[in-house]
Write a protein that binds this DNA or RNA. Structure first.
Lengths: 218, 218
DNA sequence: CGTTGAGTTGACCATCGTCAACAGGAGTGG
DNA sequence: CCACTCCTGTTGACGATGGTCAACTCAACG
């Protein structure tokens, strides 16, 4: 795990010190990294695989608040308790840090803290984007935004491919977009019928990228 | 403006230095503090009045991403550009800081930065809460959650009164909850008919707090 | 070859959005 | 003082988007 994109603020030797605090770790598909509302032990950096982040209402309704892919961090809030659960969508490998140790390291490196602060504010902006998506867009628009946005996130990793991996189930997508599984399925089928995309095993291939990105932007 | 709740990390003399950087400022009702996607000049601390924060889609659809009340900060992300607009719902007074100066001050006070970091992560958690609200709750539940949540925020200011000030229009509430003005109006009317609340000028008085809070929690 | 679980599709329906009419206050001007 | 307009909010009738329920396909797996 070299990039440490969140840690660009660190000098080489500081980076080495941080790396010394980390432990590599694996999770099987469907295994939980951590649950909602439990004590937070660790900070995670995903090195391979995908993770879903979700919140539950007491009556069982679920909202997926995000998906983590390689390079993403979890638990950076450094809060004592988790506010969402995290579950492996595929088999997952992570670099894990002890939360207390990581927190102390951060306190000793204000430049890193400043970088994390900017990162958190960027996340906040994305969360607001998601509010607009769920609150003010139609079902088809939500699905398109989801696919286009996910492709953009993968583009750094898979060389800008038009094939978007979808390791999550339709249920996960639905719970992310505030829809039902059937509505997501219908939206994807409609786009496939219109030759805007092609459904492939464990993903979709975007065919009419221009059209899809126009809808996502509009 | 004494509380500086965000600045509890500062010593008395440091607080004084920060205060020296601030300028008091007024805005008339409907006046814009700043627009979406413009250069960010300032950091604001609301001292009186209410502000709506909103994002616009290119086609004019609007999502209100939050309301700011006395004690709240705006522009703390310290990003170069604004990601949402802010408009005064009532006449508003603020303490305004130059963004660059504030940013430098923060860089010289890691303890303050750490406090701001925790604050940003708390905001992020609230944004996720809002995603659950918009994505997975019914119209009536959304309205109830909104009222109960707003009451809680005002409780520090107005001595835990069951009367919730609503300086925003129904349109603002609708755009916050991902609903229409008519649906918000109907939900409030229904709750009033059921004696769960009472509509008063520029607000509502919660009558059956237990019931409302139960719905909001569930 | 049967079972299971994900995904798709269809028929029907409910919630919420749309459109329209109306009520009530605030501001304006005769 | 009384129209008159304007704006916000309320209410009703109707309709569409998306949810519900159910049947079916298909692949994975034992």
């Amino acid at each position: 795990m070299r990039p440490y994109s969140a840690c660009g603020a660190l000098e080489h030797d500081e980076l080495a010190k941080l790396e010394a605090l980390s432990r590599s770790n694996c999770y099987a598909q469907r295994q939980q990294l951590f649950a909602q509302d439990e004590d937070a032990h660790s900070v995670y950096n995903i090195t391979s695989g995908s993770v879903r982040l979700y919140r539950l209402l007491p009556d069982g309704r679920r909202q997926v608040v995000g998906f983590a892919i390689p390079g993403d961090f979890l638990g950076l809030s450094l809060a004592e308790r988790t506010v969402y659960g995290a579950e492996a969508l595929t088999s997952v490998t992570v670099c894990r840090f002890d939360r207390e140790q990581f927190s102390s390291f951060v306190d000793e490196h204000p430049q890193l803290l400043r970088r994390l602060y900017d990162l958190a504010n960027h996340e906040l902006s994305l969360a607001q984007e998601q509010m607009v998506l769920i609150g003010r867009r139609t079902a088809e628009e939500r699905v398109i935004c989801f696919l286009v946005g996910l492709r953009k996130r993968w583009s750094h990793i898979n060389n800008n491919s038009v094939t978007v991996p979808l390791p999550m189930t339709r249920q996960d997508i639905a719970d992310f977009l505030g829809l039902t599984i059937e509505t997501v399925s219908r939206a994807i089928s409609k786009l496939a019928r219109e030759r805007a995309l092609l459904v492939v095993p464990d993903g979709v291939r975007l065919l009419d990228v221009a059209r899809l990105e126009a809808v996502a932007a509009g």
